[in-house]
Design a protein around this nucleic acid. Sequence first.
DNA 1: GTCTATAATAGGATAGAC
DNA 2: GTCTATCCTATTATAGAC
Lengths: 192, 192
Amino acid sequence: MIIATSNQWVLTLATFRASGYDGASLADIASATGLGRSSLYHHFPGGKEEMASAVLDRVDAWLDANVIAPLQNAGMPAERLDRMVGALDAFYDSGRNRCILAAFVVGQSRQLLGKRLAAVFERWIAALAAVACDGGVEPDEARRRAEAAVIAVQGAVILAGALDDPKPFKTMLADLPRGILDGGIENRDKRA
Amino acid sequence: MIIATSNQWVLTLATFRASGYDGASLADIASATGLGRSSLYHHFPGGKEEMASAVLDRVDAWLDANVIAPLQNAGMPAERLDRMVGALDAFYDSGRNRCILAAFVVGQSRQLLGKRLAAVFERWIAALAAVACDGGVEPDEARRRAEAAVIAVQGAVILAGALDDPKPFKTMLADLPRGILDGGIENRDKRA
DNA sequence: GTCTATAATAGGATAGAC
DNA sequence: GTCTATCCTATTATAGAC
């Protein structure tokens, strides 16, 4: 299927990101990818639901390759976190893109994909908590900081989108490693 | 208009919150409020767009009365923040409800209401920053902490919704005042 | 694998009786 | 102020030619 072997899945992702599941019509997806509506059904007999699921498959794989794996690689905790930060900066275009996970938590897609969305967040949080543990943080506190980091990413994407200004997202990303390893941003205004 | 003078606007709000603007059909709103579709048009000749705008009016008023005003009232900064925390806990039902602002940032409602959504966030951030200033925080840092607090609320609602678990939201709310006044959560694991 | 054509339905909106 | 009936368009989905 073409969406699995070309960049067209990125265009489909962009459509769902901007419009949500309910707001993205097949005409929108057809227009974004350059395919006819019938061609979409050839690749995804299950219709829009299968398209959204396929996009989530790709996002899942992207997260594994660009977030989970780098967090688990060798290196100092701070270096591993920096790799994740770089990947997130690209994925969200420094805050100019919405989050597909947040978009899918609303409306019909919540019923269709809710379980998978929870699993994605759980995996991300677990990988972040493991890095915090490697950095010497107690397990319970590591989990709290990992949740806080994921919360910060999601919230910053919302705020940057609402204000139409990437700054809050950039600030959040810059503070993220310290939040995991030092437990806060208490030293930010004292740094060089 | 009945939605402005009864609790039916809350039911309309709930529909938009759960389904987003594009996902909430007039049949859904009619069913939630108990009104027929034509009755809705009697109150809102502008259709769904006007209904969403009216809901946002009410949310705006709710924010003024329950968040902005308490933050500006007399009292210690910590007490003012606690009042906001209590209001947010009720509004989001301890994390079981989605955020209408986040829902409206996606899809068609973004085009319709984007400017107003930005204004709501700006007002909220400004009020929080003022409290931080009253607590002795420098203006630039106060603004950063205020943004971080709003980000935390938005992100925690997303995560709690995705995990179908209110815990991340409750943890976030408990840490919010410290984040504003102390600049982080560095003392959480040391508290009683 | 992509297209045109077309069905079938859902959604937004209006008219007019009561 | 609410209802029934209706219109129109958008949307999902399918059939079948190429």
